[in-house]
Design a protein around this nucleic acid. Structure first.
Lengths: 200, 200, 200, 200
DNA sequence: TATGAATGAGTGTTCATTCAT
DNA sequence: AATGAATGAACACTCATTCAT
């Protein structure tokens, strides 16, 4: 088992790096345009303008490719979310966090949605493990000095972080799927739900 | 489109009704125990104690079967939710609605979760159309005389109903998947999120 | 793992029995005519006049099919060898045993040879386990009352049985591969080797 | 046929000779440790610390590499066997021949066994042709002045040489595969079989 | 001369669906 | 009406081999 899901070889030449990037982008496009149904290795390779053999030079399995795509997309989102969570005031941080989530999701809604779905698969979850934990960011955020006092209790805080993440994710996902494009409006509603949840 | 997704024949005889029921229950069990991976027509027929040919006598395609299962499960939930939504006070109605959702979800969490997932597929969505609309129930609920005044506006009310449904669904799904079993606690948190959202 | 190598379903209808037989015979023919290189499931199905799906209805994997073919061929040989080994005098029994081996091998030499080769594969060996043990037959044969006295010792007897089987197999294999057709001559030479080994 | 199986270029420089040697040794190790399953050109090149391109500079095909490995291993064994066959007395020569075979086989049993297997492939056989003929050595051995009189007849002698080679090979192969390590005991049993065969 | 990225035919296997019995 | 044998398109993945750099 070992590293059945880790990328097979680090691209050494410039050509390889380009190929890997092309494959990942092709995977993203296929997933976005054809959905999970069309998400097969042959289609991805074709779309990338590469052969199926080339794909398997860099990814030892379809799952590994999916995982890499997931991590790539999440890395982008996570970077923004982390910056948001670093703001000193918890309210500002939460606002920025939600803003980032909304903006990110509405950029490539179908892709984000399908990846959220893939993320639930146990094998993928296990391989991903702690990487890019959005829950951890929320945990930090809720632990800021000016955060509500009842969240001092670590157990309560953990539950709150999980619930908030669930709410934020679900709302931006749904908005993306409905084709909404108004980021500020979406952010406002998510904000209402999040703050409301914490206030109760 | 024709009726590729509608049940092939209305079961007229009692034997037929029994067969259809057996197939649906088998489908539910397979989905619950083996997940989407094991959810194939041959396995379902075997589990139902019927032949694959018989399965195709009653369902013209796998999608039709999936849809029927979805509707069956939702019918149960919808009945309870409708009763809840009928309560005169909007607050009582919402509480009961959330209670019903939590109880329902934690009964067969995996089944509910996987069906939620299947429900997103465009073909299934299209065929399902308006049947068992939980959003409509929430719409009614938010239109009660004692409901918040700002929801008088139909557009706002529609958005609120959709958002509430998204929040409720996501929270009970996540709880089910985490293996939570404490219905009152879950209901309390969902309640917080819902009321908080409306209050903001 | 369980029964990954046991046949998938017992053929119930007459049609199925015929199909299974056709697949096995096709496998034998392909192995004989194309060698291990051409021994692939698609070729076997095509040769059997069946679809690849049908092949997999009866055999859960290529290995299972190989194993079934092995057992089928060995069953024939084993029956004759067992009859030979049952003769009262150990000399008569050994003669008959060798005769049977020579006759069997020269009937379909390539098939027998390739199956001997497949038989070495660890997975196949494990699955086959004790079935059709020719070594056991020789063990019985060498334990007859009139057998050489020095074979009373079980350890020596076991070594002798293994060595004899190795010698007999190798000589008839080689003869088959060389295209020999003179069964009595082959039997005579194998007999010389076997008796000579025991006499020394 | 041309020379698809002959080494692509004679290694002229010392560096080349070293590379060829490294590739052959890597091939031997891979074959020994991973079996025929792991015996692929990429694995061999990696193990040799060379690129796949380099491998193909020296060997025009995988078969050519296999053949070269075969000849290399046989050359070692053949040298010893030839020395044995050169002894004046046929009995001494045969003893020494068997000893050499047993010792050689038990040194790298898995490698020897797998190469014996590859040696049977028609294309390899054809390309190898008469090189390193052990049968010829036995032929010489059985033609010594003090050899049994009935082997004066060339036809009989040829059959005897072939049979002896078959017996010796099979017994040492089997011993190697069983994990035997007692060379003298193995040599004794093979001797018994060989002399017994000739005596009969 | 050496490298290693790229190729793609080939292989084992699955599963929704059909149709003769 | 019921059966289950049969189908075959589709998919994940391998590996010998080539060739631009």
């Amino acid at each position: 088992m070992s590293d059945a899901l880790s990328p097979r070889k680090a691209p050494r030449q410039r050509r390889s790096a380009h190929t890997v990037e092309a494959i990942l982008e092709a995977a993203a496009l296929v997933l976005e345009e054809e959905g999970l149904d069309g998400f097969n290795t042959n289609a991805i390779a074709r779309r990338a303008g590469a052969s199926i053999g080339t794909l398997y030079q860099y990814f030892p399995s379809k799952d590994a490719l999916t995982l890499a795509l997931l991590l790539r997309e999440e890395a982008k989102a996570h970077a923004q979310a982390a910056a948001a969570a670093a703001l000193p005031s918890w309210r500002d941080a939460l606002s920025a966090f939600i803003d980032a989530a909304a903006r990110q999701q509405l950029t490539r809604p179908n892709l984000a949605r399908l990846l959220d779905q893939e993320e639930e698969r146990p094998d993928i979850r296990a391989a991903k493990d702690g990487a890019h934990s959005f829950a951890d960011l929320l945990l930090i955020l809720l632990d800021k000095p000016d955060a509500p006092a009842d969240l001092r209790d670590p157990a309560r805080r953990a539950v709150a972080a999980a619930d908030l993440l669930t709410i934020i994710r679900a709302m931006v996902d749904a908005a993306g799927q409905r084709g909404e494009t108004d980021v500020p409006d979406l952010a406002r509603r998510v904000h209402a739900a999040a703050l409301g949840y914490l206030a109760a």
